[in-house]
Nucleic acid binder design. Structure first.
Lengths: 173, 173
DNA sequence: GATAATTGTTATGGATCATATCAAATATCG
DNA sequence: CGATATTTGATATGATCCATAACAATTATC
């Protein structure tokens, strides 16, 4: 759809515009060559990440959950009774930016802030019943539509190897 | 360094705060459990991508190049004579956002916009001599410091497998 | 030759990310 | 004990990135 848009044009002025048309070995002229870019880790990582996030959003579109929101719900479910700072920092979210995120989730009745009795400064985070239900549905959608897509593409063994390598990079790079 | 910050506190009020202290099989209490998050493709992808970009910036800090700028220089070098729309679109950059990027690179005399004689609307992009030199130095830094780091971490075979899988995801997901 | 499409550009708004600062609560330490 | 420092959640604010609409100049199309 976007390939044949920029065809050869204005070839009547410069006669050389149609040179090297026969026995062209490779490199179709209308497509740009990525070259070393396709071997750059950062480039391909970023491109893959965008595609994966995009697919994630489609898969859980019915629940209106972003990857970041999904990760918050997962972490709160796994670690009930933790405060905002703890949840945010393990997700790499800065505390100021976490406030609006929680405002959103709380306004949708997916999680609650509870003033801690031990330390009245902190807010303990817990999932509401609705939050647990939504998260359960999200998990199913992600497993059956999102992760399954990855399995189809790579196979289970490769998928596990990929996750392992990315985890290692995230931790040790 | 950030592990032992939030130690157990105020354990004298609630006697249950110190329960399950002996024969704890796993799960140190001061560290949050990632749970299913560590298996989520999107999460580990994003985390890895941030680490890789961070490392890239450090490796080429002397040249003041971001990953995006590096990709532009690489693509222009590989595809001389292309216009802004072509370069931007193959990198997934929207044309309006590409203008400021080029203003930056051009103000640093790394690349030039040249009015095309065929189509006087478009700007042909080429690297300046300085741009070619800077790109050459950047390539060396990236190869010896950045990509080499990845080889040390994964090994050459795994590195190639990782790049291949990420490329596949970027294209077919 | 009138109309449509393309190119680079500007303006603009949203989303993400980072820093400084604050009040309330707690911890630390003399 | 009490003065000081630290922590927590929050606000304000700015930077950066990403997306859309619109525009003038140029070219393509019919």
């Amino acid at each position: 759809m976007t390939v044949s848009k920029t065809a050869e044009k204005s070839a009547e002025k410069t006669a050389e515009a149609t040179k090297a048309r026969k026995d062209a070995p490779e490199a179709p002229p209308e497509t740009l060559q990525l070259g070393e870019l396709s071997e750059q880790l950062g480039y391909v990582l970023k491109r893959a990440q965008l595609k994966v996030f995009e697919n994630f959003l489609r898969c859980v579109a019915s629940l209106q959950l972003t990857p970041a929101q999904f990760s918050v719900l997962l972490l709160v479910e796994k670690n009930p009774g933790r405060n905002q700072t703890e949840i945010a920092s393990t997700l790499g979210i800065l505390r100021p930016n976490f406030v609006a995120m929680l405002d959103n989730l709380e306004s949708r009745d997916l999680c609650s802030r509870i003033r801690s009795t031990n330390d009245r400064r902190s807010h303990i985070l817990v999932l509401t019943d609705k939050g647990k239900a939504v998260l359960a549905r999200a998990k199913k959608l992600v497993a059956t539509k999102h992760e399954a897509r990855l399995n189809d593409l790579l196979g289970t063994t490769n998928r596990e190897a990929l996750i392992a390598m990315l985890s290692k990079i995230a931790k040790e790079f």
